[in-house]
Design a protein around this nucleic acid. Structure first.
Lengths: 345, 345
DNA sequence: TTGTAGGCGTTATCAT
DNA sequence: ATGATAACGCCTACAA
């Protein structure tokens, strides 16, 4: 059915070694042999078995990517970057979706090792201690995306979440907002979330403002939850002038709750997001957000894996360093500035 | 570094054959041996090499998925279904992003063959003749997602695009719309697009309405393009009472153009979409759309590949059959009904 | 420059 | 029930 290197050798009247040489461009082969081999390959439409090659080479020019969900513009943006970089480097990508389930995370981590991937890029909603353990004990390079946890021995790529959050909060304050709700992601240990919250706190503190506990909520990365949370606030008539959500999807949830209750965004309450997925600019009013360079982050992660592999086979240097890429605040239409005379109302 | 089956055998004091047997649960092994082997595996944290296994088995319990873009809720929804099904069947998935580029499509098609995937699921924005040729000449089972072309010799899974479009158009007409714009995807040969258009035509014809050529446009699957198209219509004051876009993203583009021009959706013009990606229900007004069972479609595609593989190794039965899954029309808030007295205005 | 042969980690077929 | 051993398709010294 499928031809092997031997068939090509026979047809070209040379040995399999020669065929192998022309395929890999290695060593020197006479122009004549090369010609014959090429022809034979062409005629047979021969494709070398990556599997056999990987077996002898002890690696698979494949990198594994583990994500919570495939249908998600955040992970999607990163995946695009990963795809671009891997494909231009001759690597293929193996993906696994976990739904955030620890057991499935572990399974994919193992599966990918069994497949001898060159490295693994890991994304999760939260980082459970169990997962951290598995990751730390893995024998191939792993890089973590956008999430961090103490005790994690692998590098991670993300933005400076503290500064990003600080900057956005400050922006809100400068716009005259004094009653700001903060919708964070999850309650679980998640260094990024903690940093985002710190940034929020700091900016408030610097402005001499006190933080209103009744306005910080956990949106669990979900539109529904965020919608619910915002609706409650409205029902309680504890309405902020602005809500800062640490994911666009939560921002949209809040905005929808506001709109559906008959109020206007940003007329009545401003809403700002985080990440800048495609939806953020498509929504109306277009969301003012912190932009994360998703594509570049994906590329960077691949680069790190490939680099570590060029140095030595012993995985990453076992460092928990974190590579930060530049974010930016992009102003759109979901945040209004409150005139001074209105402030006291 | 990594242990092999031989290390396990030594440690357990048995032969590699026995180890292999307990790993695969095949044949009968004495309980004593099984115990020892299990222990050895445990102690060494041994993981069998999928690569070696694949080599001897001549297959890779991997399926390849080719998509135009990873950051896309449509492909994402399908990918989720594919992931679920493959992972529950012990398969892994290899993905390739093409950006719709023919050359990259061809490359991934080849790459995946070289990796001996069990099958390939293909998605593209359009289906160019070149790609059709490559696909027809491939030696592993291929299933096409949601797109079709004459001369294609592989099965495809999709919904009944003709009926879906017909149904939506009819719905619009029943709501009192008489001036309906139709934003289709691309000009390229794309059986699905053609069917959608036929459905639109038919519904109009049955209602005794004539089709207004100035209102059928090609949105190229893009929000920008659709936005542009709608803006032009507005500038020309050739404003329909409803626009039917064959993708949600285009629907949003149109809706945004309408809103940004100061008009209201659906107050001034209704907008309906197609696919029902996440954004469709998050957008405000929530979009009335044709819902495609993305997840189920992904599952079905995997099922087809796995089935064909159980029957015989010679690929699919070379049929261009198309498996249709049920769609549905979901009403939300982006389409209003026009009272009779208004109709004549 | 080219060919021979050993080995990569498994599975599977024989014997035993 | 278990153990040699021959594939699987390819790469790579080592020889010629």
């Amino acid at each position: 059915m499928k031809y092997t290197i031997k068939d090509v050798a026979d047809r070209a009247g040379v040995s399999i070694a020669t065929v192998s040489r022309v395929i890999n461009g290695s060593s020197v082969v006479s122009e004549k042999s090369r010609q014959k081999v090429m022809e034979a390959i062409e005629e047979l439409d021969f494709k070398p078995s990556q599997i056999a090659r990987n077996l002898v080479m002890q690696t698979s020019n494949t990198i594994g990517v583990i994500v919570p969900a495939l249908s998600n513009q955040f992970t999607g943006g990163i995946l695009n970057g990963i795809e671009e970089k891997t494909s231009s480097c001759g690597y293929d990508i193996l993906v696994g979706g976990t739904g955030g389930d620890v057991e499935r995370e572990r399974r994919y981590l193992e599966l990918f090792q069994e497949r001898h991937v060159a490295g693994i890029i890991f994304m999760g909603w939260q980082l459970k201690p169990q997962t951290v353990n598995v990751i730390n004990s893995i024998s191939v390079p792993v890089v973590m995306m956008n999430r961090n946890a103490s005790g994690l021995k692998v590098p991670t790529v993300s933005i400076d979440n503290f500064r990003a959050s600080y900057q956005m909060t400050k922006y809100l304050i400068e716009k005259g907002h004094r009653k700001i709700a903060f919708f964070r992601n999850s309650v679980d240990i998640d260094a990024c979330g903690v940093e985002q919250y710190s940034g929020f706190e700091r900016a408030l503190a610097e402005a001499g403002m006190e933080i209103d506990r009744s306005l910080v909520k956990y949106g669990e990365f979900s539109e529904e939850r965020s919608y619910q949370l915002m609706s409650e606030l409205i029902r309680q008539e504890n309405i902020p002038t602005a809500v800062f959500a640490t994911s666009d999807i939560m921002a949209i949830g809040a905005a929808n709750a506001i709109k559906d209750s008959g109020m206007d965004v940003p007329g009545d309450v401003s809403v700002v997001g985080f990440n800048d997925v495609e939806m953020a600019s498509l929504y109306r009013p277009a969301l003012t957000v912190i932009h994360q360079p998703l594509f570049a982050m994906g590329e960077e992660a691949v680069k790190m894996i490939l680099d570590s592999r060029n140095k030595d086979g012993s995985g990453m240097e076992n460092d928990g360093r974190i590579v930060m890429l530049p974010h930016k605040l992009v102003q759109r239409d979901s945040c209004r500035s409150i005139p001074v005379e209105e402030e006291g109302k």
